[in-house]
Amino acid sequence: MDQGEKKAQGGSAPADARDPHAYSDGFSLTASPYVQSGSPQLKLADEHSFWAVLGDRFEYQEDSKTGSETIVYDLQAWYGTTFDRLVIKAEGDIASGTLEESSTDLLWGHALNAYFDTQLGLRFDQYNEGKDRQWLALGLQGLAPYWFELDVTAYVGDNGRTALAAQAEYELLLTQRLILQPRAELNLYGKGDPENGLGSGLSDLALGVRLRYEFSRQFAPYIGVEWTSTYGDTADYRRAAGDDRSDTQIVAGLRFWF
């Protein structure tokens, strides 16, 4: 046939087309000798709701200069389907048995593609010494090329406050159980917040590395080191309070999920 005579596919099937159900012998998802009466019908995995809790960081930190001790937690939980789910993120610092500060995100996540979820919701910041803040959150979380785990969220608060938080992690498998995990985290603010000791622009940066041993995929103790530094007005607030603008912490903790 000449190429010019070909027509695009579409429209109704011809009368002698093969029946696509001709080989099912009348069996279907809801009608066959093997369907159990009264039982829920078979569903694909993405039609079910699942849940998970991940403790990415639950660790003890000791400042290498002052010897001060802190307990840090960084937890995430979700419930829902492959495409839509409720996500809760919680992190905070506990010193001398007191919760110094905490941040909790309540988000609705929707799959953008096979690797990333968009997230929309609210964030609540609490301070032992300072003023609590509430934010509207819009973020992106997932797996970037070359297996980097990214979590980037923009925030809008009252009185024109804005913020941006970004985290990146990478897992280097030394063996099937021994894993080295570099990690970076930064926070930026659109305007200063003197009541909570935060300046505008780049406020703080944390770089760390942790070495964990997975007794199982769900239970992995680790040790590591983390360096943190503050910048701009945030660093000035720390100096005024008698603290160093940068710290180095020795950490030991547990990573888990269920």
Rank of each mutant, 00 (worst) to 15 (best):
Phe124Arg: 10
Glu129Asn: 10
Val156Asn: 09
Gly160Trp: 03
Ala111Cys: 09
Leu143Val: 07
Pro145Tyr: 03
Phe148Ala: 03
Gly130Ile: 03
Lys131Glu: 13
Ala111Phe: 01
Asn128Gly: 08
Leu138Ile: 10
Thr162Ala: 12
Gly121Val: 00
Thr118Ala: 07
Leu164Val: 12
Gln119Lys: 13
Ala111Glu: 08
Val156Ile: 12
Trp135Glu: 00
Gly160Lys: 04
Arg161His: 10
Gly139Phe: 00
Gly130Tyr: 04
Phe124Tyr: 13
Gln119Asn: 08
Tyr115Phe: 07
Glu149His: 08
Ala114Ile: 09
Gly142Cys: 06
Gly121Pro: 08
Ala144Pro: 00
Gly160Ser: 13
Leu138Met: 09
Leu136Ile: 12
Ala165Met: 13
Tyr155Asp: 10
Gln141Asn: 14
Leu150Lys: 05
Tyr155Gly: 05
Pro145His: 05
Asp125Ile: 03
Arg123Phe: 03
Trp135Val: 02
Ala114His: 08
Leu136Ser: 04
Leu120Thr: 00
Leu138Ala: 14
Ala163His: 01
Arg161Asp: 15
Gln126Phe: 10
Leu136His: 05
Thr162Glu: 09
Ala111Leu: 03
Leu140Pro: 00
Glu149Gln: 12
Asn113Leu: 07
Gly130Ser: 04
Gly157His: 07
Leu140Ser: 02
Leu136Asp: 01
Thr153Tyr: 04
Asn128Ile: 08
Phe148Ser: 06
Gly130Cys: 04
Tyr115Leu: 13
Ala137Thr: 15
Asn113Thr: 11
Glu129Val: 15
Trp135Met: 01
Phe116Cys: 06
Ala144Ser: 09
Gly157Phe: 15
Glu149Asp: 12
Ala165Trp: 09
Tyr115Glu: 14
Val152His: 14
Gly130Thr: 05
Gln134Asn: 15
Gly160Asp: 11
Trp147Tyr: 15
Asn113Ala: 07
Gly121Lys: 01
Ala154Cys: 13
Thr162Phe: 13
Arg161Pro: 02
Ala144Cys: 06
Asn128Leu: 10
Leu122Gln: 07
Leu164Trp: 03
Tyr127Asn: 03
